[in-house]
């Protein structure tokens, strides 16, 4: 089952809830606020315990998005759930490396790898 929400699409598989960012650029405060208001209820209401954030559409983001990701990860961990990220392009991954957030987020090359990691951990 998949659903479209402002700025994201959500897919529910047997093993994970996959949240895919739809926009190529995520910059403005209002975009980030809107994403937060969209993603948080998905996390709160999902019966799944494994979440994947897929960035494959995203070509550019600001540091405010990193703050949003930290908020999401906090919410996920409060639910005793897991969060994986995937599809991050090399230029954006460099931002994660520079800020050292690659050390605290669980990041995979693509969706298949993120799903496989969840299956092997189950």
């Amino acid at each position: 089952m998949a659903s479209l929400k402002p700025g994201i699409s959500v897919q529910y598989t047997e093993t994970a809830t996959i949240i895919t960012f739809a926009k190529e650029k995520i910059l403005e405060e209002r975009d980030i606020q809107s994403l937060q208001e969209t993603i948080m209820p998905v996390v709160e209401q999902s019966e799944q315990v494994h979440f994947i954030l897929d960035f494959h559409n995203v070509q550019f983001l600001s540091s405010a998005v990193l703050g949003l990701l930290l908020r999401i990860s906090k919410k996920v961990y409060e639910k005793n759930s897991t969060l994986r990220m995937c599809g991050i392009n090399p230029k954006i991954y460099e931002i994660f490396k520079i800020t050292r957030l690659n050390r605290i987020f669980d990041i995979y090359d693509d969706l298949d790898a993120a799903l496989a990691a969840g299956e092997s951990a189950a």
């Binding site: 540091s63 990193l66 703050g67 930290l70 931002i95 800020t99 050292r100 957030l101 605290i104």
Partner: peptide
């Protein structure tokens, strides 16, 4: 520095560093 200690978990403070 947003990469040091618990600063890494802070929501903001990375703009100037970047």
């Amino acid at each position: 520095d947003p990469t040091l200690g618990d600063n890494i978990y802070k929501i903001g403070g990375r703009g100037l560093f970047l």
